[in-house]
Structure formats: C-alpha cells, structure tokens
C-alpha cells in the first residue's frame, strides 16, 4: 500500500516537474511547483519524516510559493492572449477541475499521513521510528550543528538587509522621476555611478 502510494506520488511529482519546465506562463509554472511540493511532502511522510513534511508544506508551499505568487501578481506577468487560449473551459468547469484536482492531491497526502500513522503507531512502537524526531533534531542543532545554525541566522539577516536595499533604492528612484525637478538631476548622476 505504502509502496504503491510512493510510486503514484513519485510519478505525479515528475509530471508536475515537467509542468514547471513546460509552462508557458510563470503562474502555471508556480502552480505546478506547488503540486510538486505537495507530492514531495507526501513522500517525506511515507519515508518517515513527518516534521520535514510539515516544514515542506508550511515553509515551501505556504511561504515561498506565496512570495512567488505575490511577485507574479505584483508585476502583472500574465499574458492576456495566453489566458484567452486557456479560456476554452467554462468558469464553473474550471472551478470544478481545480477543486477536484486539489482534493485528489490533498487526499493522496492524507493517505500518506494515514499510512505513516499506522506504520508508526505510538502505542506499539517507540517514538524513534520517526526519523526526524524533533527533540533529537533540536538537541543536535544546538550542539553539533551550532556553527551552521549561527551562520544561518547571519544569512537570514543579510538576506533581509539585501531585500530591503533592493526594494528601497527603487522606491527612491520612482519618487525622483515623478518629481522630475532639480534633485532628479543629481539622482540621475548617482544612478549613472551606480550602474
């Protein structure tokens, strides 16, 4: 049962990955990537990594993919002509399709969770059967992997600063071009240096 589920999820994973590479519009690429992450979360569950599966769904599918979608919506990258081509299906039909496929995907991951909980029944087996036992991982993170852990915090700080700098400079430029007065001259010079 778990084996067939793994092969089904693996095949779906590859199909979604092909969708990521083949998609015409970035939006469809991101949605396919979301499908890949869901399938991978199911596979992590089956392989005995419930914490990693939860992290995959919360951080990857929940946070990173939403960031991607934000940017696509912000930049309005949708191609109107391309969207027309996909308009063959009526709106309700599309809704039905999306609802069915997401329900099927969730069902598959849920099956994985059920499979895992029966395989690692807490009453019959000790907790070490989850390979990513949280207590053990946390103890390791603060002992043997202390240095990478601290480096990761530095990386996050640097990322935060970098993203703020990248976004802020653009906002100043936009304000100056809209003002289009004497300060714009000096700003342009500055931009020339920056480039």
């Amino acid at each position: 049962m778990a084996e067939t589920l793994f092969y089904v999820l693996g095949a779906l994973c590859v199909v979604f990955a092909i969708g990521v590479v083949r998609a015409r519009m970035p939006l469809f690429s991101v949605l396919n990537l979301l499908g890949t992450f869901f399938c991978l979360a199911g596979i992590y569950l089956l392989a005995g990594f419930p914490f990693l599966a939860a992290t995959q769904l919360l951080v990857y599918a929940g946070a990173i993919m939403v960031l991607f979608l934000f940017v696509i919506m912000l930049l309005n990258l949708g191609d109107a002509a391309e969207l027309e081509k996909h308009a063959g299906l009526s709106l309700s039909g599309r809704r039905l399709f999306v609802a069915c496929s997401s329900a099927a995907l969730l069902g598959l991951v849920g099956l994985g969770a059920a499979e895992m909980s029966t395989a690692f029944d807490a009453r019959t087996l000790p907790a070490e059967h989850a390979l990513d036992d949280l207590e053990h991982l946390a103890a390791l993170l603060f002992s043997r992997y202390m240095l990478p852990f601290e480096a990761a915090s530095l990386l996050l700080l640097a990322t935060m600063v970098a993203v703020i700098v990248l976004a802020k400079r653009q906002r100043e430029q936009a304000r100056d071009t809209s003002a289009a007065s004497a300060p714009a001259e000096s700003q342009r010079k500055e931009n020339g240096v920056l480039r």
Binding site: I64, L67, V163, L166, A167, Q170
Partner: peptide
Amino acid sequence: EAAVGLALVIA
C-alpha cells in the same frame, strides 16, 4: 534565495 531572487526580479 527566493527572497533575494524575487527582489532582483522586481528591480
């Protein structure tokens, strides 16, 4: 990587 990459995309 995604945060920096997407900020670069916006820029």
